[in-house]
Design a protein around this nucleic acid. Structure first.
Ligand SMILES: [Mn+2]
Ligand SMILES: [Mn+2]
Ligand SMILES: [Mn+2]
Ligand SMILES: [Mn+2]
Lengths: 228, 228
DNA sequence: GTTTGTATTTTGAATACTCAAAATGAAAAT
DNA sequence: ATTTTCATTTTGAGTATTCAAAATACAAAC
């Protein structure tokens, strides 16, 4: 059985995996995991020995199929738990992440299946992140960050890629939630800001770092089983 | 912060504490925790150093007030989670114990408070075990084992003191659940068995080991906030 | 009072995870 | 080609938890 530490490493390697065949450098992994570089090296060797990752010294890590399978399993638990906490227990979406970070290692498959059923086998978590299926399939929709859109674009928010509690509260208070319709009214390249209008609300200025955290998709495309 | 291992030790020391001022011998603790005796010794020294227990070598352990407080906290989490799983997720009472054994270490106080509210601040878990209050008070009702009752007694089942899945399924299938009214029709000292009638059901024979696991209380005495 | 038997403790070692700091590798700058 | 710089790895050590097996203490039996 994988310890919760191993599960956390595997999950983060999977999530921050550069698309394609790229290896993740261990320095990056160390930063992500909040450990010193030497710790990451040691851990990655362990993962490698247990067949969850492949490790090229001085180059980086990549998950094996077994590692990806585990990562998807943990991710599924994390996201289903988040949605459960929001829907059933009424926890605010800005607070579910740290809870799920712990519970994802403690919940049994049996219980997870019950939660999945209770929620109607949802496809997205409260932040718009896709929930891997029980079989381990992850829907990879081609969404783009809000800052990458042209002025005048009319989009729909697909997901918020930041688990920080303050940012999530801010986003929510301005209607910036998955599913919301959004009009990019203007962009100011020099001022590093964009002007958006969410649903019928007051126009809102966002800096590029905020705009980068909001992933949007074409307006028309309706997503099934939208969450939150 | 106490590790989940420490929480488990403390909880079990509390639960199997001989009433009064008795110390728990470390051999007993080792058996309860499924570790070799030497491990129990080591662990108890650690608990002692962190102020959670007092340890008399060769005699045994006793929790300090700090240890009791922690034990009650863990017990509260465990029992509230069990009831939550039964009531909200529809998990069978015979399966909640192992789940709660893990989740009790992963849930936050905030989440626990939400669950407590959602359940209406219940006083008993699915097995009839009292749930310590948030302040750490544990209602100690004077219940007695079914085998200790006289023939002819009419009682009410207060709790089932066995978390074994098979026994719980058996008990449930015969109506032996907390709150059920029960008539001890006959006892056979030599045959080591008792004859009981639960509610209006067919009389049922129980051996003494089964009868010892069923705690009963006077029929009249209604318990508030009965669970399951 | 000595022997025997059992409970408990000690010792030595293992696994899992982590850090500090020294050593090393390799790319970048000169 | 050498030096500088920075990322990565290695080494040594510490905490937490556990076991196997030897040592010890104590009570029970003789
Ligand atoms: Mn986690
Ligand atoms: Mn999420
Ligand atoms: Mn536990
Ligand atoms: Mn219980």
């Amino acid at each position: 059985m994988a310890t919760s530490t191993v599960e956390n490493y595997i999950k983060r390697i999977f999530m921050d995996q550069p698309t394609g065949t790229g290896l993740m450098p261990l320095g990056r992994l160390a930063k992500i995991m909040n450990v010193v570089p030497g710790t990451a090296t040691t851990m990655v060797k362990t993962l490698s020995e247990s067949g969850l990752a492949r490790y090229r010294p001085r180059e980086g890590v990549r998950l094996t199929p077994a590692g990806e399978k585990l990562a998807l399993h943990v991710l599924r638990r994390h996201r289903l738990i988040e949605l459960f906490l929001v829907r059933v227990l009424g926890v605010d979406w800005s607070e579910v992440h740290p809870e799920a970070e712990e519970l994802e290692h403690a919940i049994s498959d049996k219980l997870l299946a019950r939660i999945d059923e209770l929620l109607g086998k949802p496809a997205f978590d409260p932040h718009g992140d896709p929930i891997p299926s029980a079989a381990g399939k992850l829907s990879r929709s081609r969404v783009q960050p809000l800052i990458a859109c042209n002025a005048g674009a009319r989009m729909r928010i697909a997901r918020i890629t930041d688990q920080d509690s303050r940012f999530l509260r801010y986003a929510n208070s301005h209607g910036l939630v998955p599913g919301a319709k959004l009009h990019l009214k203007d962009r100011d390249a020099q001022g590093d800001s964009i002007l958006v209008q969410v649903n019928g609300r007051k126009p809102l200025n966002l800096g590029s770092s905020a705009g980068a955290k909001i992933m949007v998709e074409p307006h028309a495309k309706a997503r099934t089983k939208r969450a939150t």
